[in-house]
Structure formats: C-alpha cells, structure tokens
Amino acid sequence: MNRYFREISVTIALGLILLAMAVLAPGFFQPQPLLSLVTREAPTLVVACGMALIIISRQIDISVGSQFSVCSICAGLLAARGWPLGLVVPAAAAIGALLGACNGMLVAGLRLPSIVVTLATMVILRQGLNLVQQGAFVNLPDSVQWFGLSQAAGQWTLVGLALALLLVFGLAMRRVAAGRWVYAVGTDAEAARLAGIRAQLVTFMVFVLMGTLAGIAATMNIVQSPQVQPAVGSGLELKVIAAVVVGGVAISGGRGNVWGAFAGLLLLACVSPALTHLHIEAYWEKTIQGAIILLAVVAEGLRQRKSKGGRE
C-alpha cells in the first residue's frame, strides 16, 4: 500500500470538491473572493504546520488558540505604540516562543502529559488575557494594515509568506536530520534515545517552534484588520488539529507531513464558501466539518484494519 495514500486521497477529495464547484457553482472561482479566502486561512496554515510537527512528535497542543490570542494582542499593543512591523513580527514570535517553551518545559522537562498541560496553559493564557484586556479591542495604526501596502499586494504577501513557510517545513521535515528526528521521537521515544537522539530536547524544541509559529501567524492575522479583538483565535486549536488529522497525520505519532495538513486545511476551509455558493445555509458548516473529520478517521481505521497483517 502506498505510503502517501492518505495525503493523496485528501488531495483527491479536495480536487473532487473543487471540480463539483466548477460544475455546480462556477461563481466560486472568482479570483477576488478566492484570494480573500486563502488570505484568511494563511495564518491558520502557519499554525497548522506547527501542529503537524507537534502531532508527529506524538504530542498535542491545545493551547495554540490562546497563544495566538496573546501574541495578537501583544503585537497589536506594540504596533499601536508605533513599533515598526519589522520589530513587531520578531517580538510576537519571541513571545510565542516563550509561551511554547513553558509548555515544552512542562511536557519534556517534567514529562507531564501534553494534553493536560496544554489544557491548563490554554485556560491560564486565555483568562489572563481577559483579565488584562477586559475584552477591550486594540486599535491599530493604518500603517500596519496590509503591511502598509495595497490590499491586493498585502494579500499576496501573506499568502506568499504562508506558502514559503509551508515549503520550508515540508522540505525540512523530509530532508533535514532534525526533521527526521521529530518522526523518530514520535514513533518511539525510547528507541530514539537508544539511537542517540535527545528525545526530550526534540520535544521541547517542537513546542518552542509551535509557539514561534503561533506568534508569526498572529502578526499575519492582525495586519488583515484595523482592530485586534481578544477573542481572536479561540477555537483555533481544534480547527488546526482537525486540519492536520484530516490531512493524514496520525495522532499516534510518527506519521504524516505538512503537505497533508495543507490539503486538510484547504478541504475544511472550502466548506463554508462552498456552502454559500451552493445556497446551503452556512450554519451547516460545523456539522460538515465534524463529518469530514469522522470520515477521515473512519477511512484510516478501515484501511489499517485491512492492512493489519501478521503483526498484532
């Protein structure tokens, strides 16, 4: 059985949906709305890349939504103080890295289960933000909007940036030793240790990277609107986990790649605009997304059942 079966099948599913849209609702393919859609999802893609790494290394991070919010607000406050974007982006990334390092310390250093650790940090960060911000919006200076470019140029920049990051991660996870270590640790941390890989350090770094990407994604998000609201990013964690899992990254670690996560994200992101164009009411979106997640895992379950050979 082909090793990339899942990635290919998700891409085919995406292709089929796009094909169906081309036949049923050609209006879907107007360039401007499509560009807006892709731009909106660009920050999510960056976070999904990080989440793919996290899940490949057999961890989970449900605090990304909160990290994203904290970084957004911090970046917004810095930008509002007149910091240039050239400094805001690294600052947000650094804040994200710090938050990720906290998770990483708890998970890799103390060896606590990541699902509970990040559940706790998610609540702490979210509520801490609410405490400080009290629900207030941050107004951004005009110079921040679309990096001070025209809207179209800004949109293309964002999409380009997200795709560039995707490319970097896609290649690095395949061709750089550190990327393969993430797979090794996710498959079997003890075997990795015996092979001379510092498993705990790899885990820690993956969490730091996740935070950094959340910080970058946050700045990619705030440039799209004149204000930052503190609730931004709530629910993001489930959206990216869903995208990554639909894209064929195994929750049991060691399997999958960011390309699949990309296809999974596009598939889920298409649902809402596709519904609009097919004149189905938009409140079915979550139902369909849930069904897609279940379908993806059921397909995987059936496949594994079939290919389960001599091994127990």
Binding site: L238, I251, W284, K286, L294, V297
Partner: peptide, 12 residues
C-alpha cells in the same frame, strides 16, 4: 480524535 470530530458535529 473521534470525540474531536463529534465535538464539531454535535455543536454543528
């Protein structure tokens, strides 16, 4: 993952 899917499905 199953309950993540139904989390979305039920709310949806």
């Amino acid at each position: 993952i199953v309950t993540l899917g139904t989390y979305s499905l039920f709310r949806g």
